[in-house]
């Protein structure tokens, strides 16, 4: 583990815990935005810049603004305490879940290993070998998303559209603005 990765890991863990235990909602939103930014850098280190861009734009950017807008329209109970009272049974359940998931860590392959099922899969190598020749698109991720898997992506785009309609239904409004 390089020093950059170690610092990033500590940062992500610290902001995640801060998101959970801070009492003030504004502070929680800021901690959550910092957490999203840290995760975005983690995606970059894992060589997934497309996902990193999404995490930075949606997680750290838009979601934070929507949360801020929401708390600006609601009333926050005043309190002098810095942290929430930790619910011990809930903490225990969370700890057990983390421990159970942690047992699978040893089964994971090395980061960047060339012998993982994904890297050796026939489908992956077909995409990597033929994406440019068949679609004329240099970014293999885009070739898969919009080319080979275009129908799935149409479904995703319609889901985004449906989310907007759903919010209008929830807010009992007929126009967006």
């Amino acid at each position: 583990m390089t020093p950059v990765e170690a610092v990033l890991l500590v940062f992500v863990l610290a902001t995640a815990v801060a998101t959970a235990v801070l009492r003030d909602v504004l502070a929680v939103i800021i901690a959550f935005a910092a957490y999203s930014l840290g995760i975005a850098v983690v995606w970059l280190l894992l060589r997934a810049p497309d996902v990193g861009l999404t995490e930075a734009a949606v997680g750290a950017g838009v979601t934070t603004l929507l949360f801020l807008l929401t708390i600006a329209k609601t009333v926050r109970p005043p309190s002098d305490e810095l942290f929430v009272d930790v619910n011990l049974p809930a903490l225990g359940v969370s700890g057990l879940l983390v421990a159970a998931l942690a047992t699978t860590l040893t089964a994971l392959p090395e980061i960047g290993s060339s012998s993982t099922p994904v890297a050796t899969s026939r489908v992956t190598n077909y995409y990597l070998d033929n994406a440019y020749a068949e679609t004329g698109v240099e970014n293999a991720v885009t070739a898969v998303l919009a080319g080979y898997r275009g129908f799935d992506t149409l479904g995703e785009a319609v889901v985004v559209f449906a989310a907007l309609i759903g919010l209008l239904v929830v807010l009992d409004r007929e126009v967006l603005a």
Binding site: L66, V160, L164
Partner: peptide
């Protein structure tokens, strides 16, 4: 996709700002 997503982001923001009727 870009048009859908940018319109949705702006629409979500304005709809939340306008609030519940």
């Amino acid at each position: 996709i870009g048009i859908i997503v940018s319109g949705t982001v702006v629409g979500l923001f304005f709809a939340l700002a306008a609030g519940y009727r």
